[in-house]
Design a binder for these strands. Structure first.
Lengths: 150, 150
DNA sequence: TATTGTTATACTCTATAACTATA
DNA sequence: TATAGTTATAGAGTATAACAATA
């Protein structure tokens, strides 16, 4: 017998295989709309919040301030995001979606819905529900809090 | 009611959240051994095969030839990999692990075992088995074949 | 001409830290 | 000094394509 386990012996292997496939499919879909998955997550967060400070977004998305700045730069160039000064604290900025940005969110959300439905429709309803339940249990019991970006 | 679904409404969201957490944890573990997850996958593939052409590895790992070249360069620098000429076809090369490389594989495999056991031990045995079963069913029914790299 | 493999370019995400302006 | 945010740098992964050598 070998002392070296096979890659396929690990749950993490199958998890990544499925997760990467779903993500790559979704990345292709949103890229047709001119954004990356990280940009979509960013826009989705701002859609509810109306306006947020970069630091608050960094906290919410589990990213560094630097990463947020770079993402914001790209979305600004694409005309989907606005950066406004804070009159009370001249160091602070506020990020919000432009009208173009807000218009795009439902389109991207529909792609997300479609992608998920498409990917998991090979499961029975019971399998799908069981998968959701176990994944959420894992997140809860391990205390995971950082939403996935990529 | 909103026309925009929440991010958490998607199975893909929970899947990525768990998958990214497991992968990042594992990346940290193997990085202590001086390799990346992609390098580990590469080494694990060569461990069984003894020697392979870059093109065969690219096919097996679902990567481009260029990506394989870069990975091989790094492993060469670390002394874990050897690149030899093929006497029959002077265009072709053969990649194989050095003794140092072969020695490292069981160490990395043990880390992979530990990481998986650690991560999923918050599940009951039944939950763990069910998760494995559903993930493998998804892979099978969707015809996924590319092993996860990152 | 086609194939093998390397190299070049470019883009995204990640992480760390230096830096600017303001408090 | 401390904080908010930007900018710089570097590493890793991905993708595409140009390229050299050989078949």
């Amino acid at each position: 017998m070998s002392t070296v386990s096979d890659l396929t012996a690990h749950t993490g292997y199958w998890l990544r295989m499925v997760s990467n496939a779903v993500s790559q499919d979704f990345a292709r879909k949103v890229s047709d709309e001119g954004v990356t998955v990280a940009e979509w997550t960013f826009m989705r967060a701002l859609y509810d919040a109306k306006a947020m400070a970069p630091s608050a977004l960094a906290e919410k998305m589990g990213m560094t301030k630097g990463a947020i700045s770079k993402l914001a730069d790209r979305l600004l160039e694409k005309g989907l995001l606005a950066r406004t000064d804070n009159p009370d604290d001249k160091r602070a900025h506020s990020l919000s979606l432009t009208d173009a940005g807000r218009t795009k969110v439902p389109v991207l959300a529909a792609l997300a819905d479609m992608n998920d439905a498409e990917y998991f429709d090979v499961l029975t309803r019971e399998e799908h529900e069981t998968l959701d339940r176990i994944l959420k249990a894992l997140v809860e019991r391990r205390g995971l809090r950082t939403p996935p970006v990529d």
